[in-house]
Design a protein around this nucleic acid. Structure first.
Lengths: 342, 342
DNA sequence: TTGAAAGCGGTACCAT
DNA sequence: ATGGTACCGCTTTCAA
């Protein structure tokens, strides 16, 4: 039996082979109960013999739906995103949807790419700093269900986020308890809503303790290299007691710089991150854990709900917002516990 | 101006508004040079006014292509995959393809899911242990371009991998130079071609040095917890000098277990991993670096080539195989350098 | 229960 | 340069 490129059989060929009409084939293959058991089996056999698989575009065109949804990321660097995708994909496929993924990072025209994606899916999840509010608004205005993930809300659009402010405040207070008084924030609040939230929370927490937070060091990136370079500069000047980093990668970069400078964490400089990457555990980095997989899963589930609503023309419920809880993870990088508990 | 659900305008409405035929609209919108500048602009205006976006399914149906390709993963746990996706997505979108992603891990019927995916794309990349060779063969036999990634080759199908055997041999020899003689391998060669390759390489390297490698500890998973539990057992028995782990996550689990047992790495037990995760750097783990992003990018590029070949009905070239180089990364977990270099 | 036929929304060939 | 129209492959009335 030679391996032939059996390309693609159509419903017509199946119909002919089974000696029925294409309508019957369509029904038989989709378990409609308007088909005799016997007919169904004849059709099944024919389909199998021809290796028939219905054309997805044809189906989508006829049904008016894609059976797919999409998720838009800024980029995929760092373990953070992998977990989100994982949760998302699991929840989406549980609902029978395929997942299209789009990274906007090094792209010429992110908005165009997102719009193109919008045309391929029944719903879209948009994460963080990828496209502007008006693009989101435009797409949502189309009637396409949209869920925002880790991003500031847009009127009328569902939003799922992880808590920033509260835990950031707790983190700040914890540092103060360690005796740190001069504290620097690493990360640009203007570049990401998450960073803005963390920065604001830290500022509030410190203020409550009577400590003032100077202007943040506005990094361009949130990667390890950015952190390392910023720290190099920081270490040569009037070194603060502690740096609070916008995320773990930056914090890990700081750790590297400190070590390269022959200094010690936390004795010479306390450091904290955000995300609780796997690396944080091994670097002894105090950080904040986010429910990443749950973030993705929630977004996918909400999207499915919206898609169902749209299909079943039931009442469209009001935009939902949810903030998933985060958790402070204390390790040794935030400071030496000087007092021994009794 | 109320925000209306302008749902979806069709080419017919654009044609009507612009006062031309749908054929002209189609041409104008796709920059055909068989349209007057003036007509084109009129059509453009009409399209814009109606927020027209061509229906992707309709286009795909008419053109006979999806302008999308897919990638199939076992799961997405660990930073390893994120990097691969990143490279893949970048290369795919550079060629104008959207990316569909599928995780087979906790799925009832992976083969069915992959076949379904195959119906939505112009080409498919299949990674590691996701579906059996016959499924791959079946899909490839359909004429759908397929590229295998980090997986044993299937006849007639392109394969991209990272080198295992050679670097594994080097790793083994390095451990022997450290003076380690009783060495255990953690990971099940039967569960993954990559693991099998690493195991074989290690075995060969040790054999060359006259050291025998006992049967591997066949872990079920390649995650941190699996490594930790396996190490707990290992530490209570006749402890080996060193453990070579199938990947970094397992190795990190071993590190955790060793610390929990109050022992020291590498003094009491040398440990090595594979992948060079970010965490490996901070854990001081000796490991092997793979060109992950490049793996993904290469797969995507090869796939595009195949897709072009199929479209342009040019000669189909023979199946290609490439092994991307890997690199030993020596840190402190593999052993103390007893001799001081002069 | 089954079949005929009208879409679904485009593309592209054939005329004009 | 444009318009008319035959597909692309499937779903879904509407009749029989």
């Amino acid at each position: 039996m030679a391996m032939k490129a059996l390309s693609k059989a159509t419903i017509y060929q199946v119909a002919q082979l089974a000696g029925v009409s294409i309508a019957t084939v369509s029904r038989a293959l989709r378990d409609s109960d308007l088909v005799t058991r016997e007919t169904r089996e004849r059709v099944r056999a024919a389909a199998q013999q021809l290796h028939f698989t219905p054309s997805r575009p044809a189906r989508s065109l006829a049904e008016g739906r894609h059976a797919a949804n999409g998720i838009v990321f800024p980029d995929l660097v760092g373990p953070y995103y992998a977990e989100v995708v994982l949760g998302y994909e699991a929840a989406a496929s549980a609902a029978g949807s395929s997942v299209l993924i789009l990274t906007t990072h090094g792209r010429r025209d992110p908005a165009a790419a997102v719009r193109e994606l919008a045309g391929r899916v029944d719903g879209l999840t948009v994460m963080g700093r990828t496209v502007d509010d008006d693009v989101v608004g435009g797409i949502a205005g189309t009637g396409l269900p949209v869920v925002l993930l880790a991003r500031d809300p847009v009127p009328g659009v569902d939003t799922v986020r992880a808590g920033n402010a509260g835990t950031a405040r707790a983190l700040a207070e914890h540092l103060v308890e360690h005796g740190h008084r001069t504290i620097t924030f690493l990360g640009d609040p203007a570049r990401s809503p998450d960073v803005a939230g963390r920065h604001a929370g830290v500022k509030a927490g410190l203020a409550r303790a009577g400590v003032e937070l100077p202007d943040p060091v506005r990094l361009k990136g949130l990667d390890l290299e950015s952190g390392r370079r910023a720290a190099e500069r920081l270490l040569t000047g009037a070194r603060p007691d502690a740096v609070i980093c916008a995320n773990d990668e930056v914090a890990l970069g700081v750790l590297v710089a400190v070590e390269e400078a022959g200094l010690k964490v936390p004795e010479d400089l306390a450091v904290t991150g955000w995300d609780d990457l796997l690396a944080a555990r091994f670097a002894g980095l105090t950080t904040v854990r986010q429910p990443m997989r749950e973030l993705g899963a929630t977004a996918a589930r909400w999207l499915n709900r919206r898609i169902s609503e749209a299909t079943e023309s039931s009442e469209r419920t009001a935009a939902r917002r949810r903030i998933l809880p985060t958790e402070l993870v204390v390790r040794r990088s935030c400071g030496v516990h000087k007092e021994v508990r009794s």
